[in-house]
């Protein structure tokens, strides 16, 4: 049996993401040193500001050169650099089980797992703390972020145990996630985000206000984008077994496409409003390539 990592990621994928470095945009709140700015003032070499001395401050922080010039006591403050707390939230609802004819047999859930593995591998490699949550109608698994190298193994095993199948409600799940993400960090949401777009956006805004930087990987299958069906089809819901619909897709297609556009537009605008990164990916694309493209664009944007 392959090692869990190699089960999800091929060597080319590993080589593609091994050199990537994901930096948090804002300050984060880690427990150890790292690449990312911390909101704590510490002893790093990055000068932050001068502040008048008040009794209780450590005297070793006084800038004596400045005292010599100004005859006043100031202390030097330095930015603390800490590691990142990332939480990868994986949708394992029924809708993620869909696998179209152009995705080489890869379901959206598998795509999400591989993308999550890729992220975890990358973040652990840069010694950031990575946690994971899987959800459908509620959070089914939660692994708090750890930065230990062997934590990756734990994450991958949890991913392997993830089975898609029931209904989802992303907005409720995101609100539930608030209790787990109390410290500043980065949340990756790997989902198709099917549901009430307005409610999801509200939940994202709530999470965002909780000092979480959010990146949503919205995973699509090609079939969901162009609805290519022509013959009379019975669409059976992947989430609710009793929900099925016998339709002639040729007549529905144009309205479906229009509805899809409206849904995407509303979701995109909501994400933009709340400064949530929304990356739409397709299962027919390479997840590692999608990830590397995202990180590259993120760097270019600063």
């Amino acid at each position: 049996m392959k090692a869990p990592l190699l089960r999800w990621l091929s060597p080319p994928d590993l080589s593609r993401v091994s050199h990537l470095q994901l930096l948090a945009r804002g300050v984060v709140e880690g427990v150890s040193g790292g690449l990312h700015r911390s909101h704590h003032v510490g002893s790093s070499i990055e000068f932050k500001e001068h502040r008048p001395y008040v009794p209780g401050d450590e005297t070793r922080t006084i800038d004596w050169k400045l005292f010599g010039k100004t005859d006043r006591l100031y202390i030097r403050q330095y930015e603390d650099e800490t590691n990142l707390r990332c939480t990868v939230v994986i949708d394992q609802s029924g809708s993620m089980k869909y696998s179209g004819s152009r995705s080489n047999g890869m379901s959206k859930h598998e795509f999400a797992i591989r993308l999550a593995a890729c992220l975890a591998y990358m973040l652990v490699n840069q010694q950031d703390a990575v946690g994971m949550a899987t959800f459908d109608s509620k959070i089914r698994t939660y692994i708090p972020p750890r930065s230990r190298p062997n934590h990756l193994q734990t994450l991958l095993e949890a991913m392997a145990d993830s089975k898609p199948g029931s209904e989802t409600d992303l907005s409720v799940v995101l609100q539930g996630l608030l209790s787990h993400c109390k410290r500043r960090g980065l949340v990756f949401i790997l989902s198709d985000c099917f549901g009430d777009a307005e409610a999801i956006v509200k939940s994202l805004a709530l999470l965002r206000s909780n000092h979480q930087e959010i990146v949503v990987f919205q995973i699509w299958d090609d079939d969901e984008l162009d609805f290519p069906f022509q013959t009379r089809t019975m669409f059976r819901s992947l989430e609710l077994e009793t929900h099925q619909m016998l339709v002639d897709p040729t007549g529905l297609r144009s309205v479906y496409i229009e509805n899809l556009r409206a849904f995407r537009r509303e979701f995109e605008q909501g994400c933009m409003r709340n400064r949530v990164d929304l990356i739409s990916v397709k299962t027919s694309d390479s997840f590692s390539m999608a990830l590397s493209n995202y990180i590259a664009s993120r760097r270019s944007r600063g």
Binding site: G94, Y98, F235
Partner: peptide, 30 residues
């Protein structure tokens, strides 16, 4: 009409909205 394919489908909320909007017109056209 009696022959159709079955597809396990995720984006039912989009399909349901389309059907509600278009089904009567489609029926008439058919």
């Amino acid at each position: 009409r009696s022959r159709y394919q079955t597809i396990e489908w995720g984006a039912m909320h989009l399909l349901q909205a389309s059907k509600n909007f278009n089904s009567r017109r489609i029926q008439w056209q058919q």
